[in-house]
Design a protein around this nucleic acid. Structure first.
Lengths: 108, 108
DNA sequence: ATTATAATTCGATAATTCCAGAAATACAGT
DNA sequence: ACTGTATTTCTGGAATTATCGAATTATAAT
């Protein structure tokens, strides 16, 4: 994974509003949620929500599927997992081989 | 973990420059790296690096320890792990109980 | 005290980002 | 075609952020 790509995903999650949107979708599971339902739950202006969803969509962290007039949004679990893996991927690679306290990477 | 706190950590990691700094420290392990070593490796202006380190420090993702004139920087593995846990904590909690493809949370 | 090294703060500029209201678009039903 | 609902795009002002050079602070050695 390229640094810029990972950073764009982290940045997408780096605002409370967008993080709440994402976590709401994470909670929703594979059923997902329509944009309108998100808008009601989180009480964000529709245009603002749309922008945030676009940011999350472009970053690959969510997907959208059209069902007639409503757009179902879903968290992209795979993308999320890849991001987490990236963060820890080379954990302690330069260390002296001793166990790194607090590091829960499989490497350490 | 509060949303705002998690978002501030994600935001700290959400710029390529800071993400590289952090991953360099993740690779370095518990030995850590002096600010100067980071500056050489990543070729960032000292003042810019200092600002980014401050951001990471405030967010709790790194720690610093003074050794005479040099400042040793270390990734905070525990803080990192808590952040990752937070992202997945309530994964699929509203789902119908069916396995969520792509979701690797222990819950699913 | 003086010097040297390490790192931060200051100040300034350019660029980015957030947010919401208004208008526009997409789609389904009548 | 018309209407209603859902969502996006356009626009722009306000606020934040990134970046760097220059000056400053902190610490240790002589």
């Amino acid at each position: 994974m390229k640094t810029d790509f990972a950073a764009s995903q982290l940045e997408a999650l780096g605002k409370p509003t967008r993080l709440e949107i994402f976590r709401t979708l994470i909670r929703a599971g594979n059923e997902g949620l329509p944009v309108g339902a998100l808008q009601e739950r989180l009480d964000i202006a529709p245009s603002t929500l749309s922008h945030h969803l676009k940011t999350l969509l472009i970053s690959g962290l969510i997907t959208q599927e059209r069902q007639a007039t409503t757009l179902i949004c879903r968290a992209n679990y795979q993308s999320m997992q890849e991001l987490i893996d990236y963060l820890m991927a080379e954990c302690c690679i330069e260390g002296k081989g001793i166990t790194e306290p607090g590091c829960s990477s499989s490497r350490c």
